[in-house]
Amino acid sequence: MADPPVVRLTRVDVAFPEPSGAVFKAVSGASLEVAGSEFVAIVGPTGCGKSTLLNCAAGLLKPAAGTVDIFGTPLVGLNRHAGYLFQQDALMPWKTARDNIALALEVGGTPATEARDRAQVWLTRVGLKSFGDRYAHQLSGGQRKRVGLAQVLIRDPKILLMDEPFGPLDAQTRQIMGNLLLNLWAADKKAVMFVTHDLEEAIALADRVVIMSAGPEARIIGDHRIDLVRPRDATEVRLQPRFHELHKAIWGQLRAEVVKAYGGEIG
């Protein structure tokens, strides 16, 4: 029998109570499977519930209906196999970059000195070798994301959940971060769920691109396999003809949803 998928969402509904007492149904009947060592990008128009779906896989949010299975077992509480890279800054501002990374290990009982040594290795890996003693406000947005990435990866999670991690960064930094992520991922291919609103980024990085419809009651409306060869360079891959074919095919589907999300304003 084949291994169960690493993450399996089955007909997941997510609902939030509104102040008026009504119930806002953000996601409706979303089903998605992520296999081991598979990089899946989830793309959709703004406010479609991409992050909501990710939070279900993380266990931060309990779906109103449907099931979440991790390695074939129903998820109870937080997903202990997952590392989560947030869109916003999630570093503890009162700790240095090195201590932030080391803390991820110390939480699991690693002695402090060992944790700090290993944190230094990860600082080097994300290109911040000499920035370990800086506090969050002394780092640029891109550097903070690198620290965040190291903080998540040092625990060696089986699943990597990323919520528009490079969203707040400028275009060049995003591509550099994309390459960094691909290099780190290539080392031990974890299962990745990567939420983004940027279709080009999704195609450049992922094995599969999943399209969500405009909310409310967002559904999964498309699932595209990206057959670009690996290893890829997140910048150069965008120049390949195959990239453009894929982009054209997927964008055709996504465009309609983006227009819907803006209420037809941009026709």
Binding site: A58, R80, G83, F86, A90, M92, V107, R155
Partner: peptide
């Protein structure tokens, strides 16, 4: 910050931590 809190919980912190 709820994000820092969520991050800390995803890093596996117990209530005491």
């Amino acid at each position: 910050s709820p994000v820092i809190l969520a991050n800390a919980r995803m890093l596996g912190m117990s209530e005491r931590q």
